[in-house]
Design a protein around this nucleic acid. Sequence first.
DNA 1: GTAGGGTTAG
Length: 671
Amino acid sequence: MLHGHAQRSPFPLLQTTNPKTLFHFIHFSSQSQSQSQSRHFPLHSTLSSLAEPLLRRDPPENSSYAAVFQFLTGRSLLRLGRQVHAHMALRSLEPDAFVGAKMIAMYASSGDLDSAVTTFNRINNPSSLSYNSIIRAYTLYGFPQKTIGIYFRMRSLGLKGDNFTYPFVLKCCADLSNVWMGICVHGISLRIGLEIDMYVGTSLIDMYVKCGEISDAHKLFDRMIVRDISSWNALIAGYMKNGEIGVAEDLFEGMARKNIVSWTTMISGYTQNGLAERALFVFDKMLEEDSGVKPNWVTIMSVLPACAHSAALERGSQIHKFASKIGLDSNVSVQTALVAMYAKCGGLAEASQCFDRIPLEKKNLVAWNTMITAYSSHGRGLESISTFEEMIKAGVQPDTITFTGLLSGCSHSGLADMGLKYFSCMTKAYSVEPEVQHYACVVDLLGRAGRLVEANKLINNMPMQAGPSVWGALLAACRKHRNLEIAEVAAKKLFILEPDNSGNYVLLSNMYAEVGMWKEVDNLRAMLKSQGMRKTPGCSWIEVNGKAHMFLGGDTSHPQAKEIHVFLEALPEKIKEAGYVPDTSLVLHDVSEEEKEHNLTTHSEKLAIAFGLLNTSPGVVLRVTKNLRICVDCHTATKFISEIYRREIIVRDVNRFHHFINGSCSCGDYW
DNA sequence: GTAGGGTTAG
């Protein structure tokens, strides 16, 4: 009978185990697995004394096993857990609701969800406790639908659930953004008197926050009798995600005690709302205050995008060093955030170094995507492709973002044929359906090659509605190839799809200006004005000695403004000797050529570059960031500057990177 | 047990 049972069992080690080997196994594993910790934690002796009743001849009780499973939970001792399970089965002990719950927790925490589920299904009379274990397991493994299904099955059996059930069920409603389900579960928890429970209450706040119902979340917060730091944190996160940073700040300041999550919430809130400076400031303040909070990997991950956003390479690498010092740089998520940060700060070499340091088996989809996208935005299409092929070789399944990176990489490097090849086979070979953004990349790809009619045809045959990204790509291509006819078609679509984007009006207006159609230019400018829109002011910044210096177009407010302007006034003559011809075609005003030239010398990117040249030693790479696309004249001028002054200049514009070296740019003059 | 999270095209 015993033997038969063993053969039916889904647990592979069942047949080979007897009490004696179990003892040896416990003895051996506890010694080998904990050699380094044994001085601090007596794992071996604890486990031996817990397991001791199991090894006696008299039949042990379920509860003895429960203690062992509980001890094994969260220790990643899956083999040992299986041995204990097998030992139990050999003694014909069927897990009851209680031991079953502990076994489920052990399996789930050891990464074996299948065994957890099998265990659950074999429990004869599951209790709330057994349901809680499987609900927790399904939630942590990211199966919210399953969790909710199990929860309602539990309710149908007349089990109400307790304060351990509802936080997970609510988390699932939150993950699904299903506010109706959330309200339903809220109602049930209210009826059974659990709303006032601290954990249930916090989970309810979180659920309403994640469903975008911030006022309901706040009402709940006000009703809570006992609040925890977590309740505050959940609400603060809501106001930051919401964009109501002021409210979040007030709540944060009003907290009697703050923990690392409170600080991290504020930092990531600032980052996500584009307030990079504030994010970095709060990060510093947290470290200075010495309030006993210790940054963890989420903190580092939240602060790095702030460096990326403001292109603060020096700040970013300082934080990198800090993360290494406190031992957080071996975390894949931190490493991935580092890759993204370095790439966005113009440090492609550092980015790929960080990527190389991630062990192959730890490189996940996000890590690969980040590196592919990094190469792509730097115009290194061939590297994008080879990284993609390595990813496939490593057995990681690509997703929609992978192909966005890959295709835009091909287009940025002029690899039209490669891009089209990947686009045409992505469904068949990689099971990824093309989406709007992939069409946008292909339109860009064809547009770059001057195949505008083909691009237009592709748009008309798209299986879905063409979005602003697609028409935007076509419009940009038309500007480059001076095709006013198709440009007008694309622009008209864009005026409807994104009426508030002044960039589209400016682009078309520039095209009219190029061919001297000043009446149309005026019409467009009148349209902009009547709709209360203004051209987004151009703005560039550069980091020198760890400090960012920002310039607006025509800016004279910088302390060194005079010096900069003297330099820029003299610049055209200097680079004209090397062949520079000022390109005034894009200056909007219908004014004299001389005046146009002056307009050009005050573009924000030129101011930043001039400042960089004046304040750094020869050989230092200049890294400039601009909030719009770099203009044609600045692009040309920068190429000459890189040659005459023998400087490497890296400009990040709103779309991509430009590496200027020895008179040429990595974008191949198409952007 | 609850709260904080990295990768997306013009």
